[in-house]
Simulated scan of single mutants.
Amino acid sequence: MKLREKLGRRTLGNCIGNGGVVIWVLFELLLTIVGNSRLGKVVAANVKELVYYTIAFLQMTEQQVHTWSADANQFIADEEDATYSCRISEVFTSFIRKLFLVGVLLLEEVVNSFDGEGYLAIIDAAKQWFNESQTRKVAGNASWWRIREATLFALSSLSEQLLETQESGFQTSNLKTMIEQIVVEDFQIDSLEYPFLYARIFTSVAKFSSVISSEVLEHSLDAALKAITMNVPPPVKVGACRALAQLLPKAKKEIVQP
């Protein structure tokens, strides 16, 4: 289905303005190419690069960080907006998030159209960006966390497709190991300094709880329980609540008893 059909009858110009139309149409073109069995051959040789740069596009902007830090309700609304609908009254940050969702739609199409190769492309790109973010972190780059959050956002958004592919027997790349490595590493960061990344860790654990080890799940559950009782930024509490909603029904009783 074309993006214009998902948006409804409003024109792209009315929704996002001329500058946004260019980006939107570019994504629509890529979606058309990737989703077409004949045209898909054009990008097949470069699908890893396509995924790599699409994930990079999913990084939070300064505008989003500012808006969501000041307005927790807007953060929740934008996080839950997965309908690709267009409301003219939305603030600019929502427009940006919609473009991000289109980027996720492109990644979904890669997995659906290229099967095992698409799965590998997603996992390999995620590994590359994780390593790159580590390099930036060590170098003292203040924005190192953005690409890490974008990587987790992409993986979480594709969790159903990735898990289905892995369950089908295609395990050349170990999804479980990579997710656990990122989660364990990032739970060591300061939630006050990097609230959006910390929140994304919680939602990622919830999405991949079926393949994450019991030890990592228990640690995540403990961290979430502590987060909702501490003075932490709203995004962290939101992420913790989402993780608890997913993990508590399956948790061992001794873990959640006071």
Rank of each mutant, 00 (worst) to 15 (best):
Gly40Phe: 12
Ser210Ile: 06
Ala121Asp: 02
Lys253Ser: 08
Leu247Glu: 06
Ala150Gln: 02
Leu31Gln: 11
Phe196Val: 01
Tyr84Gly: 12
Thr165Gln: 13
Leu26Cys: 03
Phe114Ile: 06
Val138Ile: 09
Leu30Trp: 07
Leu99Asp: 13
Val34Trp: 04
Glu117Cys: 01
Asp190Ala: 09
Met230Ile: 05
Asn14Lys: 00
Ile16His: 10
Ser85Ile: 07
Asn73Val: 00
Gln181Cys: 02
Val232Gln: 02
Met60Asp: 14
Trp144Gln: 07
Gly40Trp: 12
Thr11Tyr: 08
Ser143Arg: 07
Ala206Thr: 00
Thr165Arg: 15
Ala56Val: 01
Arg87His: 15
Val91Lys: 14
Phe130Gln: 04
Ile123Arg: 07
Asp115Glu: 14
Leu162Lys: 11
Ser94Gly: 07
Leu101Tyr: 05
Ser213Trp: 13
Ser209Ile: 12
Ser94Val: 05
Ile228Thr: 10
Pro233Tyr: 00
Ala82Thr: 15
Glu132Val: 01
Glu28Pro: 10
Arg4His: 07
Thr54Glu: 02
Phe196Glu: 01
Gln64Val: 03
Ala223Val: 13
Gln171Lys: 08
Thr61Phe: 10
Thr151Ser: 00
Met60Thr: 04
Gly103His: 09
Leu39Lys: 06
Arg38Glu: 06
Phe57Lys: 11
Gly140Phe: 03
Gly19Trp: 14
Ile147Ala: 05
Ile96Cys: 05
Leu221Pro: 05
Asn231Glu: 12
Val184Asn: 09
Cys15His: 03
Ser209Leu: 14
Ile96Met: 14
Pro195Asn: 07
Gln128Ala: 15
Leu50Arg: 07
Pro233Thr: 05
Ala224Ser: 06
Lys2Ser: 04
Glu5Met: 12
Asn141Glu: 11
Ser204Leu: 02
Thr165Trp: 09
Leu175Gly: 12
Glu167Thr: 08
Asp190Phe: 05
Asn141Met: 03
Ile182Pro: 01
Asp186Thr: 05
Asp78Met: 08
Gly40Thr: 05
Pro249Met: 11
Ser113Thr: 06
Gly20Arg: 02
Thr67Met: 02
Glu149Pro: 00
Ala245Cys: 11
Gly239Gln: 04
Lys2Tyr: 04
Leu99Lys: 15
Tyr84Gln: 13
Leu175Lys: 01
Trp145His: 11
Pro233Ala: 04
Val21Ile: 11
Glu117Trp: 01
Ala70Phe: 03
Gln64Arg: 03
Ala72Thr: 09
Ile33Ser: 12
Ala56Phe: 02
Glu108Met: 05
Ile16Lys: 08
